[in-house]
Write a protein that binds this DNA or RNA. Sequence first.
DNA 1: CTGACTGCAAACGTTTTGCACGGTA
DNA 2: TACCGTGCAAAACGTTTGCAGTCAG
Lengths: 133, 133
Amino acid sequence: MEQYIELLKSNKIKVTPQRLAIVELMDVHGHISVRDIFAHIKANFPSLSLATVYKNINAMVESSFIKELKIVGQDAKYELIKEEHSHMICKNCGKVDDIILETNAIVTSASEISNYNIDESSVQLLGLCPDCQ
Amino acid sequence: MEQYIELLKSNKIKVTPQRLAIVELMDVHGHISVRDIFAHIKANFPSLSLATVYKNINAMVESSFIKELKIVGQDAKYELIKEEHSHMICKNCGKVDDIILETNAIVTSASEISNYNIDESSVQLLGLCPDCQ
DNA sequence: CTGACTGCAAACGTTTTGCACGGTA
DNA sequence: TACCGTGCAAAACGTTTGCAGTCAG
């Protein structure tokens, strides 16, 4: 709890119960959609408005401490920004898992081949998770 | 033209002027949004309906000969499926370019580390294109 | 105390749907 | 000719906005 308060404060965002609930849920779930954030929090906090969730998520993305994850065939999900990592996505159940991979080689290679100045990469690996195989 | 007719026929999709215009535009542009498809074709084909564009794109995705490309901060784009490739995206102007990269190493590595059965990867490299540097 | 945040309702833009007509095979 | 595709209008979504009341700092 204290950690979430600090996270918000260090990003100069006012601390409110709604915001704490959002970052806590994101931290626990790893990746979560707006729909799921709303459903989960609303259960224990009935006055919550969807508009508030949207406003806060947009503000947090703006402040660059959460980021949006777009996945083909799924709603956008949001996650707290921590160490850089890639995502594995199950084509059957939709589960998303983090994995830390060495992606420098790809970025370097792309920089050499093209004239782009690349400073960020997004790697998604699609397949079947252990449970769905 | 003949090639586009073949493409549709080989996917058991009836050939219509609207569909030919869509696949031709996609082939020429590489990656294009629904909005842009509609705008471009409508110019020479005023009776075209947006609903038709949506219905056809969905059918083509369903038939797996085009695919949806989701990019953070942009509308979804669609492209014909050809050889596997990665995408470089300009953070300034939004341009998307294809690049062929060796991604087997990453897939292999992820397969070894995790218990996922991975058969597809999506790599997006973000930065500045030559014109925007 | 003051400005920012919340919840509500309305507005908006995008995508989907149902239906009558028209075109492909 | 029979069926599928098209265009239109309406409906269904997801997301954003404006506003009045409330709360955090």
